[in-house]
């Protein structure tokens, strides 16, 4: 929806109807995300898990668009879905996981993990609720333009950017060194 308005110079504040539509859209996406994520961590099939992850990543990209971060959304699709997910699938293949379902994917004492994440969620949920109880996004907020993002990366955030470049290089070399057969 917002992407349709991309080319307008100034965007009018959203009307109530538009907000309602966007909200509905968001809740649907959120539902999809959560369900897919839950399936991903519980499924017995490694390949299915990867596909659920794909759904989650795509849904998160949609959330970015709702938040007006189109470039991040595009990168999410390109890098995550296009590269990382494929890499993970390669990993699945190279480790010769079964394509079908497996019984032995989960740790026996799952309740500990469950407990920890429930406690974690309780803590986070409480503090979020306390902190931002009814804070609203400005209805007039503007999508962040890719040009601005680029300029900001190469001016204000040039040092972190370079650091990330070096990190990528190091990871590249590191991955080669670690996985090399010798």
């Amino acid at each position: 929806m917002m992407s349709l308005l991309l080319f307008a110079q100034e965007i009018e504040p959203l009307t109530n109807t538009e907000q309602w539509v966007i909200n509905t859209f968001f809740y649907v996406i959120a539902l999809v995300t959560v369900v897919a994520a839950l399936k991903m961590v519980t499924t017995n099939n490694v390949v299915h898990a990867a596909l659920y992850l794909l759904i989650v990543l795509a849904a998160v990209a949609a959330v970015y668009i709702i938040l007006g971060a189109e470039f991040a959304a595009a990168t999410q699709v390109l890098v995550y879905i296009g590269a990382i997910l494929v890499l993970l699938l390669f990993g699945v293949m190279l480790t010769r996981a079964k394509i079908g379902s497996e019984d032995d994917l989960n740790y026996d004492q799952r309740w500990i993990g469950g407990l920890v994440s429930v406690v974690l969620f309780a803590v986070m949920g409480y503090s979020l609720w306390e902190g931002f109880e009814d804070t609203k996004l400005d209805p007039a907020f503007q999508p962040q333009r890719t040009g601005d993002v680029a300029e900001s990366i190469f001016t204000q955030y040039i040092v972190p950017f370079e650091a990330v470049s070096v990190l990528l290089l190091a990871a590249l070399i590191g991955a080669v060194v670690v996985a090399r057969r010798d």
Binding site: Y107, I112, V116, V119, L120, A122, Y126, S127
Partner: peptide, 20 residues
């Protein structure tokens, strides 16, 4: 590593709770 991770997350959650 998993056990360490469990302890770490658990402890982080507890400490955050204490903090709150």
């Amino acid at each position: 590593v998993r056990q360490y991770a469990t302890l770490m997350f658990g402890a982080a959650a507890l400490m955050a709770a204490v903090f709150i």
